[in-house]
């Protein structure tokens, strides 16, 4: 009989780890709270830097984990330490004994309504990065005008924002904004597109090339300054105010569609998960790794491992790499 490994979370991290554990000869049991697999990433349309359709990645992950034991719409009722392993009770009544548990619960998306000054849920033409991806996926959205003349992107919504209790950089949004700005320019070539940023953090492979292309080939305007407020004008157009910090002057512009780059934040449930497993949350609210250099995928408890954005903001390739590393680490742990 194959040895069980419980994986909490059926997103990219959980599925990739399951795929690797299957090939290492284990029986991964993936527990997913939602109806469908894939987590946040499955809601996205295309992924940078190769503009890979997300559907391709998801189909591959799901096909490769067909042999795993997957429970959707299922949560964890409790987890007890038992001998040298863990007794995991699921909300559907299934009870599993597993020597290793992998936490792959991911991140939460910042609720843009909390930044009231940007008018999400208040004005008609304010959407988030996630809403835009849904629209790219073919979902109707009447907040997006038929032919917008000007489009704004607000970087760092709920990120690098101590007041929102998220001091961390969400890492992927700069690149997402550049990607989405290019995609919107392709759909609305007549529109002027403005990106309002504090810093552009384009650290990954080909990210800077995307930025140069956005400037040179698509004529997207980058304005260094954090949007301070959004209001509605008499004629219904949005007015966006920021400082043009390079000119050292206040700036305003009329906008027909405003896209807020909601950041990745720690899940609200992290403290609950941590107390259930008797592990810790870090000062940023994410789950606490043994250290942040060499043992990111290990918790301070034996047999409890991490993969993906539950320990901090991560890109998809970083998450995939961590999931593979975690599968190998679990294999080493179980082979001891």
């Amino acid at each position: 009989m194959k040895e069980n490994v419980v994986i909490i979370g059926g997103g990219v991290a959980g599925l990739e780890a399951a795929r690797q554990l299957l090939s290492l000869g284990y029986m991964p049991i993936v527990v997913e709270r939602k109806k469908s697999l894939g987590g946040h990433v499955a809601q996205w349309n295309r992924l940078f830097p190769d503009m890979t359709p997300t559907k391709d990645l998801m189909e591959r992950l799901i096909a490769d984990t067909a042999q795993a034991n997957i429970f959707t719409e299922t949560g964890i009722r409790f987890i007890n330490r038992l001998k040298d392993g863990y007794n995991v009770m699921l909300t559907n009544g299934v009870n599993i004994y597993s020597k290793a548990v992998l936490i792959a619960t991911g991140f939460g998306l910042f609720d843009a309504r909390k930044k009231e000054e940007y008018g999400y849920g208040v004005y008609d033409h304010v959407i988030t990065n996630a809403d835009l991806e849904q629209w790219f996926n073919g979902k109707e959205d009447n907040r997006i005008p038929e032919s917008p003349q000007s489009i704004g992107f607000v970087h760092c919504v709920g990120s690098r924002d101590v007041k929102s209790c998220n001091s961390q950089c969400s890492k992927v949004c700069c690149m997402t904004a550049v990607k989405q700005a290019i995609e919107l320019k392709e759909k609305f070539p007549q529109a002027e597109i403005y990106c309002f940023y504090m810093d552009l953090r384009l650290f990954g492979k080909k990210y800077e090339d995307f930025y140069i292309s956005a400037q040179k080939d698509y004529g997207i305007h980058f304005i260094r300054g954090r949007v301070s407020e959004v209001s509605e004008r008499l004629e219904g157009r949005l007015q966006v105010k920021s400082e043009d910090t390079l000119s050292g002057k206040p700036l305003k512009v009329g906008i027909d569609l405003l896209v807020l780059m909601s950041g990745m934040v720690a899940r609200d449930e992290n403290s609950e998960i941590a107390s259930m497993l008797r592990i810790q949350t870090d000062s940023d609210g994410f789950l606490k790794s043994r250290d942040n250099i060499y043992s990111i995928i290990e918790s301070e408890r034996p047999g409890i491992f991490f993969a993906g954005a539950c320990t901090g903001t991560k890109t998809v390739p970083e998450t995939v790499a961590e999931a593979r590393a975690a599968a190998l680490e679990i294999h080493n742990y179980l082979s001891r």
Binding site: Y194, K249, L251, V253
Partner: peptide, 9 residues
């Protein structure tokens, strides 16, 4: 003083 605001419109 005249407004120093840059009006992109």
């Amino acid at each position: 003083n005249p407004s120093s605001t840059l009006d992109l419109d």
